[in-house]
Write a protein that binds this DNA or RNA. Structure first.
Lengths: 137, 137
DNA sequence: GTTTATGCAAATTCTTTGCAATACT
DNA sequence: AGTATTGCAAAGAATTTGCATAAAC
């Protein structure tokens, strides 16, 4: 059994071609992908609607998470953290290149505590750094 | 001449009712607003398309900036920083309440330097903190 | 008077929903 | 066999474009 298959099993999801293909995309590319990125790459192998539903399912099962983006398009990235180890890691740091528009996860960076005004409770933090990546320099 | 009018003049924009109304909204509410927020509040006083175009113009002239949001809707906030003083302030910290969905600017917080991988150049940073605000607690 | 912004219509794109057929366990 | 997933059609949002009219300078 392939590792992509066991990922689905671990999350109590049925093994289907579309789900396997989408997981493989995330693992191969290791950048944040939008619905339309997937639609293009999978080149009409699966219905647009199926891709929407797969992304929604993956989100609910915490296989992927949303990545903030200023373009309007919702992007997603695979949650690579081992489930147990980082189950409560709700802090994400991403870098988006303004030229190639690729967004990558900066895994190793942790955010400092942000002093919030009184009465505010933090649940999650997302930092998006924008600039030029090493490939486009 | 009102202050909203002089804001437009300072950015070399013609003074029109729609532009004045949208600026007033941002100044009054002091939270990040989406196109549909404005459409509702301005209650059909202006065409949907005109609001889109006004937001686009304001973005280009740096009167407003995009605020990251995980809902898919693009939100905008007024650039309150005095232009000269903070012209190069490309760091934004926002807090979004998961209950009331309001997003506010945390003006006074500055972000630490993020150690980027070699070859990466930072242009802008956006931090979105999500949780519960003091009103919804 | 010239230039720019607006409103309306219409075209695109993005996303969701319902339902019957199919695939998974 | 029973349940969940898929594909197709179609509906509903969100966003953009073209063009004639109206407003700003």
């Amino acid at each position: 059994m392939s590792s992509t298959q066991s990922i689905l099993q671990a999350h109590h999801l049925r093994i289907t071609d579309c789900r396997l293909a989408i997981i493989r995309e995330f693992l191969d590319k290791s950048v944040a992908l939008s619905h339309s990125d997937l639609e293009e790459t999978l080149n009409k192998e699966f219905d647009r609607v199926t891709i929407y539903r797969t992304l929604k399912t993956f989100l609910e099962k915490d296989l992927i998470h949303k990545v903030l983006d200023d373009s309007g398009a919702t992007k997603y990235a695979f949650c690579t953290h081992g489930e147990e180890a980082h189950a409560h890691n709700h802090e994400h740091v991403h870098f988006k290149c303004e030229k190639c528009e690729e967004t990558i996860c900066l895994e190793d960076i942790s955010l400092p505590a942000i002093p919030l005004p009184k009465g505010f409770v933090k649940k999650e933090m997302n930092l998006l750094v924008q600039g030029i990546c090493e490939k486009c320099h």
